[in-house]
Nucleic acid binder design. Structure first.
Lengths: 164, 164
DNA sequence: TATTGTTATACTCTATAACTATA
DNA sequence: TATAGTTATAGAGTATAACAATA
């Protein structure tokens, strides 16, 4: 019968706190490009594997196809993405980056590296490396897909915000 | 000029991914008590320092007083919280837990410990301890308030969801 | 006049499902 | 009939500010 540990400082709660903090810092950074984190993730996913259909991309990211439409509309209006009809099956729209889309994706990559430096500013090189290894281990154990943010997923009906 | 690191696996992105995952797991756990993470955090804050006004609690958590009203209404309807008017200044409502509120808060604490075990299931005792120290260091450097989830804060106009 | 708590309004986001065009 | 993509509708969540009671 040990005394209860002082609640709010366990690993799970710290992860939730820091995750929110990290997401907010990134959102602020890419707001300077007039983009949201969702746009950034979609651009990155298209860059990683161009030519896929919206359906395939929506499934990888775990979001509703109808939601993806609006994002792609915005990115197309800005000249970052183009839809190319597949002549063999005219229902499919293959997604590709334009030259401007590749430029903005590079800038997002720079901001991602800046973001990483900001979030690890309190650590030395060895600590940073240790943290990265431990987080990677936990992420694998939780079954997270590398490079895909779970925030796209719907997850059912409940919300996931404060305190946890 | 080194090659760009393979983007999505830096510490900042991992924190954002795992933070979302951790928050979702916790939300699922306390949904079994018919509560949301926000309710849990408010109950915990009242338990930690009973008798404060709604205004004071809202400021600590960083949420709008008008939002807190609805949460406290729900917790009062469930019989977990009571508002006590201060006779010296009848504008103030001191917040207290009822006996049922203390019981449910204890159960939340048990779920929080279960949550922590779930999120650290892939690590041995030493790794878990190292991770906790590193996360605490980062959280302090980012200026996070211990035991207070930043999700309550408004933060301005932008959203903070996927990718980052 | 200022402050606590409350209510009301408008706005944003999202989920759902209906629709079209192609197959 | 089934599928890719799109549009429309309704619901939930939130921010803002107006309001009543008390000081």
């Amino acid at each position: 019968m040990s005394a209860n540990p002082p609640d709010g400082d366990n690993v799970a709660f710290l992860l939730s706190q820091l995750g929110h903090c990290s997401a907010t810092v990134f959102a602020d950074l890419i707001a300077s490009l007039d983009l949201t984190p969702a746009h950034a993730g979609i651009l990155r996913a298209i860059a990683a594997e161009p030519g896929r259909s919206q359906q395939a991309l929506a499934e990888q990211l775990g979001l509703q196809p109808s939601r993806l439409v609006a994002f792609v509309d915005e990115l197309e209006d800005r000249g970052y993405v183009e839809r190319r009809r597949n002549p063999d099956d005219r229902r499919l729209h293959a997604l590709h980056l334009t030259p401007a889309g590749r430029r903005i994706t590079n800038r997002i990559g720079e901001l991602a590296r800046r973001h990483d430096r900001m979030m690890t500013a309190g650590l030395d090189a060895r600590e940073r490396q240790t943290l990265r290894e431990l987080l990677t281990k936990v992420a694998e154990h939780q079954g997270l897909t590398p490079s895909v943010h779970p925030g796209y997923r719907t997850l059912g009906r409940r919300r996931a915000k404060p305190a946890g």
